[in-house]
Simulated scan of single mutants.
Amino acid sequence: MRILKSHPILSLANSYLIDNPEAPNISYMWNFRSLLGLCLVIQILTGIFLAMHYSPNVDLAFASVEHIMRDVNYGWAVRYTHANTASFFFICVYLHIGRGLYYGSYKSPRTLPWSIGVIILVLMMATAFLAYVLPYGQMSLWGATVITNLLSAIPWIGQSLVEFIWGGFSVSNATLNRFFSLHYLLPFILAALAVMHLLTIHTHGSGNPLGITGNLDRLPFHPYFIFKDLVTILFFILALSFFVFYAPNVLGHPDNYIMANPMQTPASIVPEWYLLPYYAILTSIPNKLLGVVALFASLLILLAMPLLDTSRVRGSQFTPLMKFMFWVFTANFFILLWIGSQHPESPFLEIGQISTFLYFAWFLIIVPVSGIVVNTLMDLALKNK
């Protein structure tokens, strides 16, 4: 124990994994932190192995993926683990963000870790999009073509920017090389941001379901929360194993198992399922430039939550109005996910537009107004006392 506290690196690990004081009432909703860390480690390790056998060439990319699946020892297991862990990664991060919105984890003094978390989310989506292109199936080629072409809506520099990203006048070898290099690099940047996220959380400690300070009553991270995390890690591994061994392709698009053909456009071009809510926001707006702006705004608006939430009460657990509106927001998010998988035609287009309006209205209107209502009712209750 003395060695752990005297060595600079070991003492840092000790302060996070053993002696780190935590509020005793934190629930299993706080366990997504460890699951996200596990997902990142799995993605980096399996990604390094896959990169050893992948060829970023339009003529060889699809064949190299098939080579991994058929000829490399346990290559199928590594690839399916990498692909399905990506889906679990986004499930955990959406639940983690949902927990933060519900319990007000974005409020001072934890505004900085919240902001870093939003940046991590944006980079995760960029990394996932790059990964979608690498197998060079039908959906990879046309998804890359359509999504990158959206940048052409930017005035003056749009088309030049698209051609710069492509490395030419269409998706080609240069595009695959650039996407592969960035996809290999970004997870390490994500790991660095995750460390920064932990460091900033460590400054003031984690929140808790009551939303009050827990400085007077805390427990060490080991053994209490280590074993609590192990429970969810066990269930995570069981669920991931089920998908890897029994339903490895259920979360992927079938068109991406067809070799890319520049002469044949798929009937429906959609991203991976975890990007569908934001794709629905993009396609629900007829104007291309406004759609791109709305797409980025739907993510970056999370950075404004510390300013938009005017309530003096931390979180929604003690305010019935905010609790109800949070579940309205959650239901609307699932509607956007469904709409993103449909053709942008009536009635899906109109439903998507309504859901997009409600998405932004929740942040810009409902949250601030609900906070003002809650504060007013609290002042009236105190005054009547």
Rank of each mutant, 00 (worst) to 15 (best):
N14L: 06
I18W: 11
N20C: 14
P24A: 06
Y28L: 12
L38P: 07
V41G: 14
I44N: 08
G47P: 11
I48M: 11
I48F: 15
M52W: 12
H53K: 13
Y54C: 00
S55M: 14
P56F: 01
V58F: 11
I68E: 08
V72D: 06
S87Q: 02
F90V: 07
H96I: 09
S108K: 15
V118R: 00
I120N: 04
A128E: 00
Q138G: 10
S140N: 01
G143T: 03
T145L: 05
I154P: 00
P155R: 11
I157S: 04
F164N: 10
I165E: 03
W166K: 01
F169V: 02
N173T: 02
T175Y: 00
F180P: 09
H183F: 04
L190W: 01
V195Y: 11
H197G: 03
I201V: 09
P209K: 03
T213W: 09
H222P: 09
I226T: 13
K228D: 09
D229L: 08
F236Y: 14
I237A: 12
L238Y: 13
L240P: 13
F245P: 12
P248K: 08
P248F: 14
V250T: 13
G252T: 02
I269K: 01
E272Y: 00
Y274S: 07
Y278G: 12
I281F: 06
L282M: 11
T283M: 13
T283C: 14
I285D: 01
P286C: 10
I301V: 06
L302G: 04
A304M: 08
M305W: 03
D309Y: 04
R312T: 08
P320D: 07
M325H: 08
T330C: 14
F334N: 10
L336E: 00
G340E: 02
S341Y: 15
P347F: 15
G352K: 02
I354T: 07
F360K: 01
V367G: 03
P368E: 02
D379S: 12
